[in-house]
Simulated assay, not measured.
Amino acid sequence: MNRINRLLAMSLILAVALPAEPALATDSAVSVRGDRELQAALDGLVAAGAPGAMLLDRHGRHTLRLSSGLADQVEGRPMRVTDRFRAGSQMKSFTAAIVLQLVQERRLGLDDAVDDLLPGVIPHGYGAGVTVRHLLQHNSGLFNFGDDPRVFEPAMSGDLGYAWTPQQLLDIAFEHEPLFPPGTRFYYSDTSYVLAAYIVEAVTGHSFDHELRARIIRPLGLRDTSLPTTATIAGRHAHGYVLFGDPPVDFDITYLYPFSWAGGGLTSTVDDSATFFQALLDGRLLSPALMRAMKTTIEVTDSDLPSRSGLGVYSWTTPCGTAWGKSGNAPGYLVYTWISPDTRHETVLMINDDPRSMGGPGMAVYNDMLARSFCRR
């Protein structure tokens, strides 16, 4: 998330938010009352600055889907709960699940050296001691390419569709010295997840996209989830916005090329996100031993919410106990998926705005909405 919050200086689009959509109807008087309260809270999130918002709220067999505000400010198109959006770093959970499946199949080990699995990819001596586990845990020490301002220069000059290749981004990262010895502290790095995808390709002999579709997207029926390799988003989708300028106005950044690839290029929906994390956390994708490895955590040091990093997933301390899942922040979009340890309770909350654009007060409303949905029992 850090690299995405260093946003871009570009031409601007002035837009005006329209009223939110009404609440959805539900089964009982009790649930209707609670659902109306959630709709009012979601409308409050739009009033706090988000162009639009959508919520999936699941408790046992009851699943509620709500939306508010706009998916497209220029056309005045309302947000719908079926709209696709850029899910950013939720992609890391998909990537980690594929790597862990390969560990489960004994095709590699979590403590295998990356240098041995990818001979010649990392400059000689640069990544000494880095293992697969370090890549997935965000403690490899390898420099995050998104922290180099050159990566954003094409977009800053107005070329949103500039297509960095994964190898070009790795080359930029490797120009910087490692930040610390592997395994010694937390540092969020898309570089690590590009290397993880390279490992998938080296071990399987297939493209990463092939393995993603074969192992996760098709088996789970995620029809609205993909890893695009163009700047477009297929199907009906929410536009993403960032605030820029003086006075600040919304700029449409929807069609920024998704260069983070296996580290953050995911496009999805709230339903597909919920389906994936329920399948992952209830053990349908991994063995108990690999689940234990995935849920072995270290402290996250760059988050406003108390959290810890496992292998491709996070755990958060909430007012009602632990939540597992992952956040995703692509430019113009923010999504969190929280799921309880028993997987009975799940919240997916998405806005088509960036945390820096929302500001501290707006993000406080977002975080309150997240906890309010997740913790109602």
Rank of each mutant, 00 (worst) to 15 (best):
L311A: 11
M91Y: 04
L179S: 07
F276M: 11
I298V: 14
G52L: 04
S309N: 12
G49H: 08
A23D: 13
E37N: 03
T63L: 06
S273K: 00
V300R: 08
R36H: 07
A40W: 00
A364R: 04
S315V: 10
G109F: 01
S303T: 11
P219D: 09
K326D: 13
L45E: 12
G235K: 09
K295Y: 01
M79H: 01
A17I: 11
S307K: 00
I298A: 01
F152W: 10
G146T: 15
P355I: 11
T337P: 01
H134F: 05
G183T: 15
I98L: 14
M363R: 04
L281I: 02
G362V: 12
Y366Q: 06
T230Y: 05
H210Y: 13
R3S: 13
L220M: 04
L108W: 08
L14W: 01
L266S: 03
G141I: 11
L195I: 07
Y188Q: 14
S287V: 02
V194T: 15
Y333R: 04
M156Y: 02
R133W: 10
G109A: 14
D354Q: 12
G221D: 07
R150I: 13
G332C: 05
A163H: 08
E153N: 01
A48D: 10
G158P: 05
P119F: 07
P306A: 10
H345L: 00
G158C: 05
A25L: 09
T230F: 06
M79A: 10
M369Y: 00
G44E: 04
P258Q: 13
S207C: 03
D116T: 10
P248I: 15
G359I: 15
G76R: 12
G76W: 09
F259T: 06
S226P: 00
P123N: 13
Y255R: 13
W164R: 02
P228Y: 11
I298N: 08
Y162V: 03
S327M: 07
E177V: 03
M350S: 05
L118Y: 09
L286T: 13
H138D: 13
Y193I: 03
A323G: 08
V114E: 14
G60I: 14
S327Q: 12
I122F: 01
A47P: 00
T254Q: 02
S373F: 02
L42E: 06
R218W: 12
L170R: 06
V32A: 15
G120F: 04
V81R: 01
G52V: 09
S11P: 15
P219W: 13
P319C: 12
N2V: 14
D171T: 08
E211N: 00
S303P: 01
L266E: 12
P361D: 14
G325C: 02
E177R: 05
R33F: 11
V242L: 14
S67F: 02
R61V: 14
F85L: 05
Q168V: 02
V365K: 07
S68W: 06
V365N: 06
L311W: 14
P181L: 02
T204L: 04
D272Y: 04
E177I: 00
V203W: 10
E21W: 00
R33I: 09
A289L: 06
Q39S: 09
A17D: 05
